[in-house]
Design a protein around this nucleic acid. Structure first.
Lengths: 178, 178
DNA sequence: GTCTATATAATGATAGAC
DNA sequence: GTCTATCATTATATAGAC
């Protein structure tokens, strides 16, 4: 799926990779759609576990940012999003997972923001979380393709913002400058 | 392509939509790959025109933000990005287009930032442009699927930032608070 | 330009032997 | 569980009549 796309994920190719005949796919799964849904669920579980681990770290926002930087994961996400636009079962699960993912660790982030960030209505934890996920996501998707323009500058800006919101232990510079 | 995905864009379906036989596709195009590339180029041209128009408006950043908010366009972008991950010709054109798009109006944005924004190294025009494109892009992709959590909060945060960077004519509040 | 006809290959899925 | 055999469908693409 990563290197050939969801359209190339056929029963024959799946079976070939595990050294079996293609008809066996229909022994283990009722249909290709069911196989696809099973694979999708396994992945959302893995992503959720990684995000929960990030939230539990000393610097949740920084960890959340790092967790989404992988280009390979981003390419897979693009594939599943394209799939979700035309497969109703995948779409429904994507919505459910997306909403859940964004609410994960919201209270923890809100608590941290209350401690260190300036009081501004616009600095909503929901918005901060989404900004981090959005920017790191696009960064990964573009990196997977080979686009790099503005990436270093973007990382610098995000790092600056993260340092403002959650100063690292050894860094006291700039806080409250925002 | 929008409602069935790139994999469902077959010669038969294309011909059917214009009321002709599927073999005629190979009269107008050498192959399906060529048709796909032609469609992609037509679209990048349209997107580029819209962005250039936004850059030329009185509030470039605001206009850039507005120009990327369409969920239908975002869904199409996802489709082409997935395609680019497995089609070398589309990938090469995507990289070229992406790099060009991000540099479009960079000097104009830099000039505006120099006039109104606080002097901070992190507020690089390249980064600002990418942040706007990233967040509005994800917002659109998610909206196309039906995800809405955090969107209102995200829009509020971006609007707050945009107002800081480029105050609208009738709004003097908050500037320099950043 | 548009058509019919056709070659070739791949797909999802089922039936039944072992 | 894994296999062989098979079906109906669809795909890209070409050749040639009109």
């Amino acid at each position: 799926m990563i290197d050939q796309g969801y359209a190339a994920l056929t029963a024959r190719k799946v079976a070939e990779r595990v050294g079996l005949k293609h008809q066996l796919v229909y022994y283990y799964f009722h249909s290709m759609d069911e196989l696809l849904l099973t694979a999708f669920r396994r992945r959302t579980g893995q992503v959720m576990a990684r995000v929960e681990q990030a939230i539990g770290s000393p610097r949740p926002l920084q960890a959340l940012w790092d967790a989404h930087s992988d280009p390979v994961q981003a390419a897979l996400t693009v594939e599943y999003m394209a799939l979700a636009n035309h497969n109703e079962a995948i779409r429904a699960e994507t919505v459910e997972f997306g909403e859940r993912l964004r609410r994960t660790g919201l209270t923890e982030v809100a608590q941290r923001l209350g401690e260190t960030a300036p009081k501004a209505d616009a600095l909503n934890p929901f918005a901060i979380t989404m900004a981090i996920q959005s920017i790191s996501g696009i960064l990964g998707m573009e990196a997977a393709l080979g686009i790099s323009g503005g990436h270093a500058e973007m990382r610098a800006l995000v790092q600056w913002c993260l340092d403002q919101l959650q100063p690292s232990p050894g860094d006291q510079s700039g806080q409250r400058d925002i």
